[in-house]
Design a protein around this nucleic acid. Structure first.
Lengths: 247, 247
DNA sequence: GTCTATATGGAGATAGAC
DNA sequence: GTCTATCTCCATATAGAC
């Protein structure tokens, strides 16, 4: 099982506006450029938390501005529109997720030494980074995972999410096909969808399990969740393969 | 595999308001009472479709009123607040879903004749009614399934959803425990959560599978989806059971 | 880079006529 | 049972001062 990581997602640095001309050269203090970056981060942090808690339409730019103690004009200056702010929230951490998943995939390929990669490694490689960050990544990552879960089943939001997550998903799908060479491609794609649905749902409300069990389950440890998810999903994939296949 | 059914969900008849005093007795036409019921249905239909398409916060009461060609006062007269309208959308079809699932559970128990119910029957009994209605239930049920999927991962909405779905879920959980007597209860509850997450995600965007497969999969037939979901989920449940268990 | 002020439109909810 | 008119508040976005 992979190791936990510190919260190290940092955003790219898009120009605040199309007219980036008006910038007085470093006259006052040396860090005058940097202040803007920090402000952007604070805005994205606040938006991430509020979108996670109340959804895109349930959050106003006023809420975001208020959360960082500024006026709304500061938010629209840095991000233009609410949609662009939403995209910025996705973008910031998506790159890190992609990186972790690719690292895991490469490591699994190395271990396999040309043989088919075990399905457990593929499931872990894709699911674990997301689940682990959700629980061990601090408040920012927790908010991000809730943010993803809340918007994952809404077509108008999945477009921007897919944009960032599909390239890596395709790499995993290719590897799944190598692991299950006799399974129809269609079945693999369905199974992958099932896996993503499970992954996203579980971070949304780890408390739902407790609720249904009437308080018998006390804590939502990520290890506890993943310990079940990995065999559950791996067995699911295997069940779609013809009887005498590897995986 | 269960049979399809016609679209027959009808609402209960809560009193429109606490002050239901002012009703002139049947003076004009005989069906004057019935008009109100029909109006309520039309409002719930419109709200269901709009909530499904744009979410609770993305839909205004004005949108709902406009969709049925009335003013917003008519909506608030019949349902009071937006939250109560939301609850009415859930309530109307939840009873039918519960009924279908209980029927399936009873039938499976009968077939089992006192033996443990096969896990396939439990998965089918719970998942099939939802998936089937989503695809074969007409536009109303399609909207409802999208409505559920869109709000399923948002805690403030799951409360009202759970209220209607938990009682039946508990009955299935009990039966799962009988089918897997040696599996820790905790594991069964997690697996059930995974199942629900998969079920809900798949109706939200059947098109996502096509998108990832770059057009290789042409249509989203419910039979196609369920044919994979059933063995996938059943195998997942079995994977959490100790080696020599039934199921 | 940040802020105040404001333009313009839409939100949920209610009063009261018909 | 339905509708018009309206209350109060909040939405996104922009202009322009500092």
């Amino acid at each position: 099982m992979p190791q936990t990581k510190a919260d190290t997602a940092r955003a790219g640095k898009p120009a605040p506006r199309k007219s980036a001309a008006v910038r007085s050269p470093g006259v006052s203090r040396a860090g005058s450029r940097r202040d803007g970056e920090e402000t952007r981060e604070r805005i994205v942090d606040a938006a991430e938390a509020l979108f996670a808690a109340h959804g895109f339409h349930g959050t106003s730019l006023r809420d975001v501005a208020e959360a960082i103690g500024s006026g709304i004009a500061l938010v629209t200056y840095h991000f233009g529109t609410k949609d662009m702010l939403f995209a910025a929230v996705v973008r910031r951490r998506a790159a890190y997720m992609a990186h972790e998943r690719i690292l895991a995939l490469d490591a699994a390929r190395s271990r396999a030494q040309g043989q088919p990669v075990p399905v457990e490694d593929l499931v872990s490689g894709y699911v674990w980074p997301f689940v682990e960050r959700s629980v061990a990544g601090g408040r920012g990552w927790k908010n991000y995972s809730l943010f993803v879960a809340r918007h994952a089943n809404s077509p108008e939001f999945t477009r921007v999410l897919s944009e960032h997550y599909d390239p890596v998903a395709r790499q995993y799908l290719n590897e799944f096909e190598r692991t299950f060479p006799h399974t129809p491609q269609k079945d693999i794609y369905y199974a992958f969808s099932f896996m993503v649905g499970t992954m996203v749902a579980i971070v949304a409300e780890p408390g739902r399990v407790e609720h249904l069990s009437l308080g018998q389950i006390k804590s939502s440890d990520v290890q506890e969740v993943f310990k079940r998810m990995k065999p559950f999903l791996s067995a699911g994939f295997r069940a779609l393969a013809p009887p005498s296949s590897s995986g």
